[in-house]
Write a protein that binds this DNA or RNA. Structure first.
Length: 575
RNA sequence: CGGGGUGUGGCGCAGCCUGGUAGCGCACUUGGUUUGGGACCAAGGUGUCGGAGGUUCAAAUCCUCUCACCCCGACCA
C-alpha cells in the first residue's frame, strides 16, 4: 500500500472531541472519524484492524464448530415484546417506525432473532447442540456515548448463541466458548482476565466477562481479584464475606434518643457533627423496585451495590427515589430517612453487616433530626441480604487467604449462561428421545470487535503513538524512504517494496514527498510493528535500518537478508 | 435525563465582557531552496461566525428560542 495513494489523514494536533488517549490516537492516526455522537466511520487502516480481529475471532469460533450466519440489524418490535425486553431494556433499544407505521427496532444483540429462527427450524434433540454466530453491527442508544469506539452507539460485535438439550450440554458449549475466547484474545496479543459478572438485563444465571487490564483512565470497569486463588469478579458482582474484622459490639445497648442535626444531610456532615465514625451510622437509601418502595440499609462507610439490591428485591433494576418521593415516603427531606417508624408499606432490606451493629445513628424521618443509640430491636427488617459493594482489601470470598486487589479493565467480551429465558418465552422447544417437548438451554457470547481494537490501543501506546500487537496491526511493515528526490533511495525503496509484497508481507510504503521528520512522526503515530528506513547512509553500507516500534533503537540488517529476516520476524510475531 | 461547557475557514484556537463589517497557527495551492525526527522564503485560495427570531444606524459580539457536540453522574460489548 503506497501512502501517496491511500487515505490516511493523520493529524498533528489532538482532536477536541477526544478525552481518552486511545481515542485521540485513533483519530490522529487517521483510523477513524466521527459522524455523530457515538457513531464512527472506519477509515482504511481501521478497516484492516477490524478485519484482522474479526478473522482471528472467526477462526476460533469455527474451530469450536460454531456456524457463522448474518442476522438483520433491523427487526420487528414484536419479537422483542414476547421476551419482555422491549420494555426491560428501555430507551437504550433504538426504536423506529417504517413507512407503514410498523414498529421496528435496531438490534442491540440478537437473542430474540436467533431464538425465533431456531424455534422454527429445530425440533429434535438430534439437531442439538447448535451454535450460531455472526460478526455484525449492533445499535444501542446509549445514554451517553463516549470514549470513541469504547462506548459507541453503533459498534461491531461478534455474538454467538448456543442451543443445547440439557444443562450438561450447556456446560460443554459454555466451556468451548470460554476456551475460544481465551485463545482469540491471546492470538490478538491481548492478555485478558476472566471475571465473574452480573447477568443484568440479559437474564440468565451465570456470566463471565473478559477484561483487558489497563492502568489508564480508559479502564471503565473495576474488578476485584485474589492474587492467591485467581478468583476475580466485576465490582458489581464481587462477593463479600459478611463477617470481616473483629467485633466491637460488646457495648451495652442504650435507649435511642432524638438529636438535632440542623442541615446535616450527608454522611460526612452527620459524622462530623455528631463526632461518630461513619461505620457507626446506618444509611437509609430509598429505592423504587418495580411497584414497591424499598429502604436499603447499609453502614455509613459502605457503598450500596444496586445490582445486588435489585437481585435481593427480585426485580431487573432498582431506581433511586427522587427528592419528592423520598419526602412523601419518609415525611422528611432527603438526608433524614431512617428505618425507625417507617411506613409499613415500605420494604426494609438491611445489609448483613447491619446485624453486627450496636448503638448506631440513623435518620429520624424528620427534618434536621437524627436518632442516636439505635439498636436492631428498635425497628423492623423485612429482609437481610448482601447489598453493599465489595472493596479492595476484603478477604477473598473463595480462598480466604489473601485480600482482594482492585484493578481497572476494559470489558472486551462476555459469556452468559442464559438457561431457558428466551427459549421458553419464544417457544423454542425440541423433542427429546422419549418424545417429550422441552425448551432448549441457551448460552450467549459476545466480543466487542471495535472495542477490542481500541482496548489494544489503550493498552499499547507511548507518547508518540500507537504500538499495535503484530497480529492485529493493520499492516506489518512501514517502509520509509528518506528522500524521494534521491534516485538511488527511491529505486532501492521501490525494489524493496516489490520484494516485500511478493514475499507476502503487508507493507505500508511512505513514498510521499515529505521531510523525514514528518514521515517518522507519522510512522510512530500509525504504529505498525516494524519500520524499515531507506536512506543514503544505509544504502552506502549495504544495510537496511529496521526498527521495532517498541524498541528504542533500530537494527542494521544486510540488504540481501532483509526480506527473509523481516518475514521470519513477522511470522513469529503473528503465530 | 440532571449538572457543567463549547459551537468562528479542513484541523486547533483568539476575537465576544466593553457592538463598528473577521484574525492566528497548522493544513492546502503555485514557484523556489531544502531533505535522517513534525523545514524555509515568496505568492495565493478558503468563512452565509451552528440555526431561527429579536434589539440596534450597525451584531461573531447583546436578548430569546432552537439544534449539535463535549465533559461529570446512572447504563453497557
Amino acid at each position: 500500500m503506497r501512502m501517496s495513494q491511500t487515505f490516511i489523514p493523520t493529524l498533528r494536533e489532538d482532536p477536541a472531541e477526544a478525552e481518552l488517549i486511545s481515542h485521540k490516537l485513533l483519530v490522529r492516526g487517521g483510523y477513524i472519524r466521527k459522524l455523530t455522537a457515538g457513531v464512527y466511520i472506519y477509515l482504511p487502516l481501521m478497516q484492516r484492524v477490524i478485519h484482522k480481529i474479526s478473522q482471528i475471532v472467526r477462526e476460533e469460533m469455527d474451530r469450536t464448530g460454531a456456524l457463522e450466519i448474518t442476522m438483520p440489524v433491523l427487526a420487528p418490535a414484536e419479537v422483542w415484546e414476547k421476551t419482555g425486553r422491549y420494555f426491560d431494556i428501555g430507551p437504550e433499544l433504538m426504536r423506529l417506525e417504517d413507512r407503514h407505521r410498523r414498529r421496528m427496532v435496531l438490534g442491540p444483540t440478537h437473542e430474540e432473532i436467533v431464538t425465533d429462527l431456531v424455534r422454527g427450524e429445530v425440533r429434535s434433540y438430534r439437531d442439538l447442540p447448535l451454535n450460531l454466530y455472526q460478526i455484525q453491527v449492533k445499535f444501542r442508544d446509549e445514554i451517553r456515548p463516549r470514549f470513541g469506539l469504547m462506548r459507541g452507539r453503533e459498534f461491531l460485535m461478534k455474538d454467538a448463541y448456543s442451543f443445547d438439550a440439557d444443562e450438561a450440554g450447556l456446560d460443554v458449549s459454555y466451556k468451548k466458548m470460554v476456551d475460544a475466547y481465551v485463545a482469540a484474545f491471546d492470538r490478538c496479543g491481548l492478555e485478558t482476565v476472566m471475571v465473574e459478572s452480573d447477568t443484568g438485563a440479559m437474564g440468565g444465571k451465570f456470566a463471565h466477562e473478559f477484561m483487558v487490564i489497563v492502568n489508564t483512565e480508559g479502564g471503565e470497569a473495576t474488578i476485584l481479584s485474589c492474587p492467591e486463588c485467581g478468583y476475580g469478579a466485576n465490582l458489581e458482582r464481587a462477593e463479600s464475606i459478611a463477617k470481616a474484622g473483629p467485633k466491637e459490639n460488646h457495648e451495652e445497648k442504650r435507649k435511642f434518643r432524638i438529636v438535632e442535626t440542623p442541615d446535616k444531610k450527608t454522611i460526612e456532615e452527620v459524622t462530623a457533627f455528631l463526632e461518630v465514625p461513619a461505620r457507626k451510622l446506618v444509611k437509609t437509601l430509598m429505592y423504587k423496585a418495580g411497584e414497591k418502595v424499598v429502604a436499603a440499609l447499609i453502614r455509613g462507610d459502605r457503598q450500596i451495590n444496586e445490582v445486588k439490591l435489585s437481585n435481593a428485591c427480585s426485580v431487573p433494576m432498582v431506581e433511586m427515589l427522587d427528592a419528592d418521593s423520598v419526602a412523601n415516603a419518609t415525611n422528611a427531606p432527603v438526608g433524614f430517612a431512617g428505618p425507625v417508624g417507617l411506613k409499613s408499606g415500605i420494604t426494609i432490606i438491611a445489609d448483613e453487616e447491619i446485624a453486627e451493629l450496636v448503638n448506631f445513628v440513623v435518620g429520624a424521618n424528620a427534618a434536621d433530626k437524627h436518632l442516636v443509640d439505635v439498636n436492631l430491636s428498635d425497628f423492623r427488617i423485612d429482609k437481610t441480604a448482601l447489598i453493599r459493594s465489595a472493596e479492595a482489601g476484603e478477604w477473598c470470598p473463595r480462598c480466604r487467604r489473601e485480600p482482594l486487589v482492585e484493578r481497572r479493565g476494559i470489558e472486551v467480551g462476555n459469556t452468559f449462561k442464559l438457561g431457558t429465558k428466551y427459549s421458553a418465552s419464544l417457544g423454542a422447544t425440541y423433542l427429546d428421545a422419549e418424545g417429550n417437548s422441552k425448551p432448549m438451554i441457551m448460552g450467549s457470547y459476545g466480543i466487542g470487535i471495535t472495542r477490542t481494537a481500541q482496548a489494544a490501543v489503550e493498552r499499547f501506546h507511548d507518547d508518540r503513538g500507537i504500538a499495535w500487537p503484530a497480529p492485529i496491526a493493520p499492516l506489518h511493515v512501514h517502509l520509509v524512504s528518506v528522500n524521494v528526490k534521491d534516485a538511488a533511495i527511491v529505486n532501492a525503496a521501490n525494489a524493496l517494496y516489490d520484494q516485500l509484497q511478493q514475499a507476502g508481507i503487508e507493507v505500508l510504503y511512505d513514498d510521499r514527498d515529505e521531510r523525514p521528520g514528518v514521515k517518522f512522526a507519522d510512522a510512530d503515530l500509525i504504529g505498525l510493528p516494524w519500520r524499515i528506513t531507506i536512506g543514503s547512509k544505509g544504502l552506502a553500507a549495504g544495510q537496511y535500518e529496521i526498527k521495532r516500534r517498541t524498541a528504542p533503537e533500530a537494527e542494521l540488517v544486510p540488504m540481501t537478508d532483509a526480506v527473509g529476516w523481516i518475514k521470519a520476524k513477522v511470522a513469529e510475531a503473528i503465530r
